[in-house]
Amino acid sequence: MTDISVYRRSGDLSGRCLCGSVTIEISGSHVAAVGACHCAMCRRWSGMVMSDFDAAPEAVTVTGKVSRYASSNFAERAFCPTCGSHLWFRDTRDDEPYEFMPGIFAGADDFPLISEIYIDRAPGYARLAGDHPKKTRAEYEARSLFVEGDDP
């Protein structure tokens, strides 16, 4: 995939859910670029294609009530319990980065798309254009942790 170090930034970003009851402040290391996933679980959760960017845990401050769903034995998906806005996906083993939904951060509007996985699972209405690295389900699962039986 892409060398994300060229997109690593240290600075401030502010985000919020649709109703404003959850706010997220990033003050520090984050990746100013977006990755996209078309796996069945991400499509089911997002309604289309899930996209996210990484932020270091020590840079993140979350204010407000957040609901978390253990979507696998190694990850959680978080959302606002009031309005349902999706906030993040996070590997819960060790001190992994947050993978934030870029749409909740106005400052992420200009982040480029730098990777796409499960491209062979992308529905016709969610094909993404651009010259960025892409991996099929088999290519991604050969080198990365995944959920068994993630079929539509």
Rank of each mutant, 00 (worst) to 15 (best):
F53K: 03
A59F: 02
T136G: 15
F74N: 03
P123W: 00
S46W: 00
L145S: 06
L145R: 15
G47N: 11
R68H: 04
D151S: 12
H132A: 03
H132G: 03
R137L: 02
Y140S: 12
A56T: 12
I114S: 01
A78W: 02
R68M: 05
V60K: 06
A126E: 00
G124D: 14
A32G: 05
F111T: 04
Y98S: 01
D91G: 04
L18K: 08
F74D: 01
S46Q: 06
Y118V: 10
F74K: 05
G149N: 10
S67Q: 09
A70L: 05
E76W: 01
C37G: 07
G35T: 14
S144P: 02
G130F: 00
L113W: 00
D52T: 13
I4W: 12
P97D: 01
R8V: 10
D109Y: 00
G130H: 02
R68D: 01
G47P: 10
D91I: 12
P123A: 14
Y69P: 07
M48N: 15
A122M: 08
A106S: 12
C83F: 10
R143H: 14
R93C: 05
C80Q: 04
F74C: 02
E58R: 13
T2M: 08
I104M: 14
P81W: 00
T23E: 02
H132V: 06
Y7S: 03
D3K: 07
E139V: 09
I4F: 08
Y69T: 13
T23N: 02
G107P: 08
A56H: 13
D54H: 09
R121S: 06
E25Y: 04
R44T: 15
P133Y: 00
D131I: 00
Y69V: 13
A106N: 10
R43I: 13
A129N: 11
L128H: 08
A129E: 14
E76P: 08
D95Q: 12
C19R: 08
D95I: 03
T23Q: 05
G149V: 05
V31C: 09
G124R: 08
A129M: 01
R8G: 00
G64T: 03
G47S: 10
C80T: 06
E25S: 11
T63R: 04
D95C: 02
D94A: 14
G11N: 03
S72W: 15
I114C: 02
A70G: 07
Y125L: 11
D151Q: 12
A33M: 03
C42P: 12
I4D: 13
A108F: 04
G107F: 12
E25W: 03
P112M: 06
R77D: 07
K65T: 14
T63Q: 04
K134Y: 00
G149F: 05
F89H: 09
G84S: 13
F74P: 00
A55N: 09
V6S: 13
S5W: 11
D3V: 04
L145H: 15
R9E: 09
P97I: 06
T63Y: 01
G20R: 01
R143I: 15
A70H: 03
M1V: 06
A106G: 10
E139Q: 15
R127P: 00
D110P: 00
S115A: 13
G84P: 07
I119A: 13
F105E: 08
